[in-house]
Nucleic acid binder design. Structure first.
Length: 943
RNA sequence: GCCGGAGUGGCGGAAUUGGCAGACGCGCCGGAUUCAAAAUCCGGUGAGGGCAACCUCAUGUGGGUUCGAGUCCCACCUCCGGUACCA
């Protein structure tokens, strides 16, 4: 009895695809190309998660579909294999990270192949391959060799950087330093998130709630010499580039917010002695606003220059370079203590918790450039050193943060914006009792009174510019990218630091010559961090660590790159994965780029996608790639949650407590409204019933029960393993179920019964074509070599049309529903024309490739079904001779009439009015309005 | 707080973009087949009322626009995800 047996047919077809290289992609596309890309996985020890195949199946369907429509498809897969877990494992076990990484890659590869994805496995790459990271290092050298020309808004070669005469006069070293200051890859002392437990610094993104994202260990801020990438130079380009991309608007917005462009003005406040004020004002008026504020001024950035008249005090960040100079002797101990305390806190800790503001008066004053009045300068950690100029003018009347601070320290509040007259709190705002951050008309602002906010901004900025006190300015939230890690398992930097005879660094550096790449990782005895913020590579032998070049001695850079590095450009390498002389052959790059469809999780919305775009733009500017943006279309697959769980509550006496009464006490323990402590228990669906919006116990409807699906997690024990599903139901069922669950982008809960449902469908498809009663594999007797009848033909062509359109629209769930309808229809037919069966199996093949191959072969196919061309539908076959349309009376369906689909408006109305039932219903009533929509409905409004 | 997304049967979800709400699947009920069960096949299945033909109500809540609203507008509620003093 040849039952549908996926565990037999799936591996055999996979073996055949592999042996025949069915999905090998040519170097260059013939005709229309399509580059379909998945976000490559980190090969963790846990293996594939059920969330991975969701996106992978979607792209596989798109790829198979496109191939059958004659496009040349590039659909590759690889591994993002550097990263912390492998290193943690190495530290624990002493096993080289490469060994474990390879094991995990092998397991992932097995799992991916088991799902029947049509990747070109000859193009597989791993970021940890020397042959790959050689080019990651090469791109780093491009960044190192590039400066950003603001006038042209373009990255250019460092030797094209204009050297000011004053620098040139100081000699080669000065020129070198000047260049180093302009490179896109540069070193700086950065306050870093040092995590002693992990023995590494972390990027801001890797720190959550003052703890490491991985492991949840405490993080301290310490200054350290770090590699930085000047992504901020590209802020404007990264912002503009978003416009033309077919990305979800939400993701675009996240990137825009992350870049955080704002416009306003920089303003200098005089901080010198009164005697020097006049001279300063005169010199500013004569010479204009200088690039640097000088010793006599404190520079701020504001987005509301219109509120300058309301600036009643100033605040500098604790790390601001002028803090010491501004601090008076009386205040020195208080200020120093405050700054010391702030330095121990991370950005996150500063803002965490109470959210109360704190600060200390410096003892100094500054002159408000428009009022001429002296205002106090405070130091407070609600001002961040890294944004704007690290100092602000505080306008408590019109800024919530300043208002809160002013309230706490009894600072002056001067309203300078009059809210609209109908504003609820206008009186209190004008009295300085409530803060108003919106727009209005200027007041208390001398000559600007009465003008609207936007106009005042321009007018005041113009006046400041004229007086040399300020200028219009743009700022970004985006920070330069902290690019070095103190880890072993990452790409070494291809940089050499010159050392003198004593082994001391001279400060000069040079790039490793391109022909010497890759810089391989050294052999180490063990991988343990030493607890100091110094990279493990420093433990390498001198053979590795020291290099002689051109008669000089160098020490290698010992930091490694972060995990993001490898994933920044992998999509390029797939196009030319084995090229030994170049990153990518320009001819191939031109033919294949950009990526037409990129599918992955929304968790990479900002970082990975922003970093890749940045690298790509640099490569573009330097002529290595031909398009300005790498990913034309982006789709985020939604999260798959675990099975729905029903949770009831019991008190200490095991009496049920309604979920409506359950809350949490201060320690987070669950308690009932009356204070009894309660515990959660899992409930069976069969014991529950729906009551209104909620579920209740059948036995006691007063007791409410929670119903919810949770994120899959090991600790919750609701993780679904793809291996188990494939074993029980088959890969085709898993693929089909993941697509049938709902829209690709939606978050949706897993349901094992649903997998059974699609398996049932595949069983029906099998029996529609295969004779399951006979011992040999042969066609069912109902499958006949004759033409479709009219209805079958219509069903077939409707199915072709809808599956084609739904697949194009990536509406996979409805495409599958259409195929189920087809199967329902033809299973009922005693005669199933073989031509219809063939067309159907072709439609099914991108979704469930293994069963389709098997059935295709049985239906007489001699080559892989993936070589078939996609069926075309015939509009003529879709036309029905007669359709039923509803007749509504006052918007309610009261009757149906049968008409030919092309019946015109008037004829429809006549038919409706003559319908027996309609006539009886409108008898004696007055028809006020007649609406007829051809092919759709008739509506009569009667009184 | 702010930003995004979503609320449709017992459940997952459809609905040509303003035109027959609930496609398709799961579950449930009934029937056929069977010694019996599984499997399979056929039929039914939003709620309430009626012997019936039918009637009434129904897409988170309340209003509005329209001949007609799940879909558009206004106000609100709930859930999920992201984010955190960026001057």
């Amino acid at each position: 009895m040849p039952r549908y047996n996926p565990s037999e047919i799936e591996p055999s077809w996979q073996a055949r695809w592999e042996a025949e290289k069915t999905f090998a992609t040519p170097d260059l596309p013939a005709g229309k190309k399509r580059y379909v890309l998945d976000m490559f996985p980190y090969p963790s020890g846990d293996g594939l998660h059920v969330g991975h195949p969701e996106g992978y199946t979607a792209t596989d369907i798109v790829s198979r579909f496109a191939r059958m429509r004659g496009e040349t498809v590039l659909h590759p897969m690889g591994f993002d294999a550097f990263g912390l877990p492998a290193e943690e494992h190495a530290i624990k076990t002493g096993e080289h990270p490469r060994v474990q990484t390879q094991r995990n890659i092998d397991n992932f590869t097995r799992q991916l192949k088991m799902l029947g994805f049509s990747y070109d496995w000859d193009r597989v790459i791993s970021t940890t391959d020397e042959d790959y990271f050689r080019w990651t290092q090469w791109i780093f050298l491009v960044l190192y060799d590039t400066w950003f020309d603001r006038d042209q808004q373009k990255g250019r070669a460092i030797n094209e950087l204009p050297i000011p005469d004053s620098v040139a006069a100081q000699g080669e070293d000065a020129i070198g330093r000047y260049r180093d200051d302009h490179r896109l890859a540069y070193q700086a002392d950065a306050l870093v998130n040092w995590c002693p437990e992990l023995g590494t610094v972390l990027a801001n993104e890797e720190v959550q709630d003052g703890k490491s994202e991985r492991g949840g260990y405490p993080v301290k801020r310490i200054p350290l010499r770090q590699w930085m990438l000047r992504i901020t130079d590209y802020a404007e380009r990264l912002l503009e580039g978003l416009d033309d991309l077919e990305w979800p608007v939400g993701i675009k917005k996240l990137q825009q917010d992350w870049i955080g462009r704002s416009t306003g003005a920089e303003v200098d406040f005089f901080i010198g002695d009164d005697q020097a004020l006049d001279a300063w004002i005169k010199s500013r008026a004569a010479n204009g606003f200088p690039a640097e504020p000088g010793d006599l001024a404190l520079r701020v950035y504001t987005t509301r220059p219109d509120t300058l008249f309301g600036a009643t005090y100033m605040v500098v960040a604790p790390e601001h370079p002028l803090v010491a100079a501004l601090t008076s002797d009386e205040q020195r101990s208080a200020v120093e203590a405050y700054c010391e305390k702030a330095s121990f806190k991370s950005d996150r800790e500063r803002t965490d918790g109470e959210r109360g503001k704190s600060g200390v008066f410096t003892g100094s004053n500054a002159v408000n450039p428009v009022t001429g009045q002296r205002i106090p300068i405070w130091v407070a950690d609600y001002v961040l050193a890294g944004y704007g100029t690290g100092a602000i003018m505080a306008v408590p009347a019109h800024d919530e943060r300043d208002f809160e601070f002013a309230l706490q320290y009894s600072l002056k509040v001067v309203p300078v914006v009059d809210p609209p007259v109908d504003h609820k709190h206008r009186e209190e705002i004008l009295a300085g009792k409530i803060c108003f951050a919106a727009k209005g008309a200027a007041i208390n602002s001398a000559g600007f009174d009465g003008q609207q906010t936007e106009d005042v901004k321009l007018a005041i900025t113009a006046r400041l510019t004229e007086d040399g006190m300020g200028c219009a300015a743009v700022n970004y939230k985006l920070r330069d990218w902290l690019f070095s890690r103190q880890r072993f398992w990452g790409e070494p930097f291809p940089i050499l630091h010159e050392v003198d005879a004593q082994g001391e660094a001279t400060g000069a550096k040079r790039a490793v010559p391109v022909e010497d790449l890759p810089v391989r990782l050294p052999d180490l005895e063990d991988f343990k961090p030493h607890g100091r913020p110094e990279p493990p590579l420093a433990k390498a032998d001198d053979d590795w660590l020291y290099v002689h070049l051109d008669g000089k001695r160098y020490r290698r850079e010992t930091n490694t790159m972060p995990q993001w590095a490898g994933s920044c450009w992998y999509y390029l390498r797939y196009i030319d994965p084995k090229n030994q002389s170049q990153l990518i052959d320009p001819e191939k790059e031109k033919e294949w780029m950009p990526v037409d469809l990129y599918v992955g999780g929304a968790e990479h919305a900002v970082l990975h996608l922003l970093y890749s775009r940045f690298w790509h733009k640099v490569l573009f500017d330097r002529g290595h790639v031909s398009v300005p943006e790498p990913f034309n279309r982006l789709v985020n697959q939604g999260m798959i949650l675990g099975e729905v769980e029903y949770t009831g509550y019991l008190d200490e006496q095991d009496q049920p407590v309604s979920a409506a009464e359950v809350g949490r006490d201060d320690e987070g323990n669950r308690i009932a409204a009356d204070g009894r402590s309660v515990r959660a228990v899992a409930m069976q669906e069969s014991d529950l019933e729906k009551q209104g919006e909620t579920f209740v116990l059948k036995s006691d409807p007063a007791i409410r029960v929670e119903s919810r699906a949770f994120k899959m997690s090991k600790s919750r024990g609701n993780v679904v393993n793809p291996d188990d599903i494939v074993e029980q139901y088959g890969a085709d069922s898993l693929r089909l179920y993941e697509m049938f669950m709902g829209p690709l982008e939606a978050t949706k809960p897993w349901a094992m019964t649903g997998v059974g449902g699609v398996r049932n469908f595949l069983d029906r498809v099998w029996r529609m074509i295969v004779d399951d009663k006979s011992d040999a594999l042969q066609l069912a007797s109902a499958v006949v070599d004759q033409d479709c009848d009219e209805e079958q033909l219509r069903t077939l062509h409707q199915t072709i049309k809808r599956v084609t359109e739904d697949t194009e629209a990536m509406s996979f769930n409805t495409a599958i529903a259409r195929m189920m309808e087809f199967t329902n229809h033809f299973t009922r037919s005693k005669k199933r024309p073989i031509s219809a069966m063939r067309s159907f199996v072709v439609l099914l093949s991108p979704y469930a490739p293994h069963i389709s191959e098997e059935l295709w072969q049985l239906l007489g196919g001699t080559t892989s079904i993936s070589n078939q061309s996609w069926p075309q539908w015939d509009e003529a076959a879709l036309v029905e001779s007669s359709i039923e349309v509803p007749v509504q009376i006052n918007g309610k369906v009261k009757a149906k009439i049968s008409i030919s689909p092309d019946t015109d408006r008037d004829t429809m109305m006549d038919l409706a009015l003559n319908d027996e039932r309609v006539r009886s219903l409108i008898e004696g009533k007055q028809i006020i309005k007649q609406i007829a929509v051809p092919g759709r409905l008739v509506n009569l409004v009667v009184k």
